[in-house]
Amino acid sequence: MKSSFSDYTLGAGVATDLVNTSALVRRSTGEVLVDAAALGDFLAEHHLSPEALSSRSAPTDEDLEQVLALRQEVRALLESGDENGLAERANALVDRAGTRPVLERDADGHWQWFVAAGPGVTLADELAALIGTGLLGVLHTLSGERVRPCASPDCDGMFVDTSKAGRRRYCTPGLCGNRLNVARHRARQHPEEAG
């Protein structure tokens, strides 16, 4: 799996989505990555084909355990709030790929910087490199201020805002944003119940 420094949105999106699979965030639905099959579904939803899985068709329980540990590491990184620390820790995630950046042509023939996983790395290490590359791209292109906690009072999620305007407020807009909008709507419809 190659990670492009230019297309940081994939890595940043995987960071956001991985952190928000936790039961800490998904209080109403619970843990998303309950088994190795759920991890496989997560990878498929993001159209990821890690090199670590090329010799087998699906993630293992060991892969799941390592990815869950990575999830805690990424959450701590996102919560740090320090751009220097973010850069240092994101660089450490990229280092786990066991290789260096390379300059190659993309599908359109343009030169791009990529990080590709070295031989024998684990699934978690490949995801770490993808996430680290995405976070470094966000830091370089947008700023560390784009790493935020969810604005919903009922959510402990974190996210990386890669939108053009930079005004995203919720870790999962379709879930957290909708819940807040429904609550506000109900309060307007029945003000006597809200007070």
Rank of each mutant, 00 (worst) to 15 (best):
L53D: 14
L77H: 00
V32T: 13
G177T: 08
L135G: 12
V115F: 05
G144Q: 05
A151Q: 14
S3K: 09
C150N: 00
G109F: 13
S49I: 14
T9L: 14
R188L: 05
L103P: 04
V25Y: 01
G85I: 02
S22H: 09
C155S: 06
T29Q: 01
A129H: 06
A92W: 07
R167I: 07
D41T: 13
D41E: 13
D17W: 02
F42W: 02
F42C: 04
A15K: 12
T9V: 07
L68D: 01
A76D: 00
L10T: 02
A183W: 06
H47W: 04
H46Q: 09
P119N: 11
D82K: 02
T99G: 15
P59V: 00
L139R: 05
V121T: 11
A44C: 10
G40H: 05
M1T: 06
A76I: 09
A76V: 07
T133M: 11
C155K: 12
L136E: 10
F5A: 03
T122E: 13
S22Y: 13
A194C: 04
H46P: 10
L142I: 04
S49R: 15
E83L: 02
A90K: 02
L123G: 11
V25N: 06
R186Q: 08
R89M: 12
V138D: 01
D154Q: 01
A92P: 06
A92M: 12
K2W: 15
L139V: 07
E192Y: 07
A183T: 11
S55W: 05
H140D: 06
T9Y: 10
H185A: 15
L77F: 06
T162C: 08
P50K: 02
L18M: 07
H46N: 07
A116C: 04
A69P: 08
D154V: 05
R56T: 12
S163G: 08
A52K: 07
Y8Q: 12
S4E: 10
A187F: 09
R184N: 09
Q112H: 14
A69M: 13
A107R: 14
D125N: 10
G144N: 01
G144C: 07
D61P: 00
T133N: 00
R169E: 03
P149F: 15
R105C: 13
L123P: 01
A15P: 02
A97Q: 03
N91C: 03
V115T: 09
H47R: 02
R26F: 01
L86A: 07
D95Y: 00
L10N: 03
N181L: 01
S57I: 05
L70W: 05
D61R: 03
A52T: 01
V14T: 00
L103A: 05
R27E: 07
D156H: 08
A117D: 08
N20W: 00
K2C: 14
R167E: 08
R169Y: 01
F5E: 11
V160C: 05
F5G: 12
L86G: 12
E145L: 12
V182C: 04
A97Y: 13
S49G: 08
P149I: 07
A183K: 09
N20A: 04
C150S: 14
A58C: 02
A97H: 00
S152N: 15
R148I: 06
T21I: 00
A187Q: 09
